[in-house]
């Protein structure tokens, strides 16, 4: 995961994303890579002092996006994740699932080609987990590649998608329509 967003350099091998070899990416190019990759974590990583709207708009503000564009994009994304009615709420006023949806909304602001979800349901109950997985499937249907990192057997088995299994840092299986095998 860290290597995919160029937070850590590989000791060996090559990393290519959408034809872009980022194995020896220059520091200068890292922000532009990250704008093309959305990342979602198990602990949401939301700013507690900012509202849902501000958490999402902060990602755009930090990249120098014009105000008019922020006004246009943020409501659209909040609508996709179903949080348009909770835009003014703060993270502590939201359920785990809603916080994760806020994090997903934030990861989508740059319309990334790739969305990496690292254990996005790790802190959620089964109902909220299902909502998040459904949302990720919807995003996938909108032509964004989603990499879901999960230890949840039921979720993996229910998806019927390509499954790459890693054990001790090595790929041990890669199936087009796979199942959880560990």
């Amino acid at each position: 995961m860290k290597m995919l967003i160029a937070d850590e350099a590989p000791t060996d091998g090559k990393i290519v994303i959408g034809g872009w070899d980022i194995t020896t990416i220059r520091n200068y190019d890292v922000p532009y890579l990250r704008r093309q990759i959305g990342v979602v974590f198990q602990d949401y990583k939301l700013l507690q002092k900012k509202s849902v709207y501000e958490n999402v708009s902060f990602a755009l503000e930090s990249c120098g996006t014009q105000k008019s564009r922020i006004y246009k994009i943020v409501p659209q994304i909040l609508k996709i994740v179903g949080l348009q009615s909770k835009a003014d709420r703060y993270p502590y006023q939201l359920s785990g699932g809603e916080q994760q949806r806020t994090a997903i909304a934030r990861s989508l602001v740059h319309q990334p080609k790739l969305l990496i979800a690292d254990e996005p349901t790790g802190n959620l109950d089964s109902i909220n987990s299902r909502e998040i997985i459904d949302l990720l499937l919807r995003i996938n249907n909108l032509n964004t590649t989603v990499i879901l990192v999960s230890h949840d057997r039921d979720i993996i088995n229910s998806l019927g998608k390509r499954v790459v299994t890693m054990d001790d840092g090595k790929i041990i299986s890669d199936q087009v329509r796979g199942r959880y095998i560990l």
Binding site: I5, P31, L33, R35, K45, L47, S62, R106
Partner: peptide, 8 residues
């Protein structure tokens, strides 16, 4: 978060 979302 700024680093994560691609702020320079």
């Amino acid at each position: 978060i700024m680093r994560l979302v691609g702020a320079t």
